[in-house]
Design a binder for these strands. Structure first.
Ligand SMILES: [Mn+2]
Ligand SMILES: [Mn+2]
Ligand SMILES: [Zn+2]
Ligand SMILES: [Zn+2]
Lengths: 140, 140
DNA sequence: TCAATAATGATAATCATTATCATTTTGGTA
DNA sequence: TACCAAAATGATAATGATTATCATTATTGA
């Protein structure tokens, strides 16, 4: 939590009330992947005058600082979650039955990454989403 | 080429002039990944009155028949290419330098897929994009 | 305290895609 | 061959997420 404040202060980035509220929302949404609209809804309980533009600006900024992790599934919008300090990037399984999103451990793609580097590329990042039926949906 | 006509005819799907032109464009764009707008531009050389709505409808239809393969990179729009009959799905490397898109062999993810199935899921599909510097951009 | 700068929020603009609907084309049928 | 119903087309409006604009407000440091 405090590494966040550090990052914020390093980056000449003021921790305003609005930003604090948005951060709180994100931290309380453990395990969820929220859209900007969903963040707005939740944040307005603390800060009713909050505008959607500020939410977009803040989420974008926090993501570029590595504090949030931004993903997009097969919808027209982005989703955000707290970035665990340890994992550079991680991947998801989206259930095609119930739509729920599950986490996938990091490092699964190291082999592939190596192979691609061998071919002369320099891998910088990658994004993987697996579409599956989750155990529960499977058994129905 | 002819498996396309089969599929089209099976699916009570008329091969109109517009659709033929769009297919031609896609087949001539070997190795490219085109947006709807780009398809429209090219197709209008053969069929100047072609409308964008028809392009969207046709691309969508052909993709759902498995004739085209639809992807989205870190842009706000989709890109289409002919689906090679053999490969169910394939993956891409996008160069963060020049933006070019390279193909990645299929089957790389079979290991991961098995692992996820082991955990009780039933994997249906997956999407992977690797971001890297391509050999040329790397050497500059 | 004051001026410079940053942040906010309302709202307009953007842009890809989808929906609507009147018109045209097609394929079968009498 | 003439006609009808269904399918397809194209112009255009609508949608929805995101970004840009800009006047107002808040914060900072001298
Ligand atoms: Mn996640
Ligand atoms: Mn491809
Ligand atoms: Zn499920
Ligand atoms: Zn390159």
């Amino acid at each position: 939590m405090d590494f966040i404040k550090e990052k914020l202060e390093q980056g000449e980035y003021r921790l305003t009330r609005q930003r604090q509220v948005i951060l709180d929302v994100m931290q309380e949404a453990e395990g969820e992947h929220l859209t900007a609209e969903e963040v707005l809804l939740a944040a307005r309980r603390q800060s009713p005058r909050l505008g959607i533009a500020t939410v977009y600006r803040t989420l974008e900024r926090l993501a570029s600082l590595g504090i949030l992790y931004k993903s997009r599934f097969d919808e027209g919008k982005h989703r955000y979650e707290m970035a665990d300090a340890s994992q550079h990037h991680h991947h998801h399984i989206q259930c095609v039955g119930c739509g729920r999103i599950f986490e996938l451990a990091e490092g699964l793609l190291d082999g592939i990454e190596n192979e691609v580097n061998q071919q002369g590329f320099a891998v910088i990042n990658h994004r993987l989403t697996i579409y599956a039926m989750c155990p529960q949906c499977k058994s129905e």
